[in-house]
Design a protein around this nucleic acid. Structure first.
Lengths: 109, 109
DNA sequence: TTATATTATTGCAATATTACGATAAATAGA
DNA sequence: TCTATTTATCGTAATATTGCAATAATATAA
């Protein structure tokens, strides 16, 4: 098979999984970290920065864009990418809600 | 190919990606949520709870166990699973460090 | 227009993931 | 011992992901 049965889970569960999945590759983690570090648009230098082929980077950027975590603006012959702060904050809120579930009462083995 | 080039990324980036990846499936999100909700060991009822076949659940549990997020204790004929609070907290710390990168100075398109 | 630069898309190969039936393994109880 | 119960493992099929070479698309500059 290889196909996730999304339909048997809640929207909330699927949303968390989708965001986690896009963060689940070191290249995308590295791209996001670089965008945060630069704290501005990045045009072009991501390929040199990360160390994967240009089509591969382009594909990872596409996935990040599809989830809304970054946005790209055409600037001459190049495209400038940066964090979409609004969507990033919303993703963060959702992930933290999941991560912060109560551990204190865990009555367990 | 299909193989992630982990060697070109930092340990930190790979670690974040690994944790995010294991959270990147709704079944595993649902399993973890159930364990938090019950707030105790869960023996057996996960298959009924989630709605996937027993071998599939077993496989997802294995992945969560490998990352250390849950632990299982043999209890008679069944196995009781619960959140590994120590490792969960460490994972949470790491993920939050990544999620909480500074957005305030974003000077961007 | 032509050349250059930059990014996106296509096509493909290799590997990984998801899911489940069949079956094995382990333990408890009759 | 035999049976029932529960979980793990194996094998396999379907699909997804990763990565890159080749190429297309787009815009700027000469």
């Amino acid at each position: 098979m290889g196909i996730t049965k999304s339909e048997i889970f809640t929207d909330h569960q699927n949303e968390i999984a989708l965001f986690a999945k896009v963060l689940g590759h070191p290249a995308r983690v590295a791209i996001l970290q670089h965008l945060f570090k630069i704290n501005a648009c990045v045009c072009g230098d991501l390929v040199d920065e990360i160390g994967l082929a240009q089509p591969t980077i382009s594909q990872h950027l596409k996935e990040l864009k599809q989830l809304g975590l970054i946005k790209g603006t055409i600037e001459g012959t190049s495209v400038c990418y940066c964090i979409d702060t609004k969507n990033w904050s919303e993703m963060k809120r959702l992930m933290k809600l999941f991560l912060d579930q109560d551990l204190t009462n865990t009555n367990c083995c």
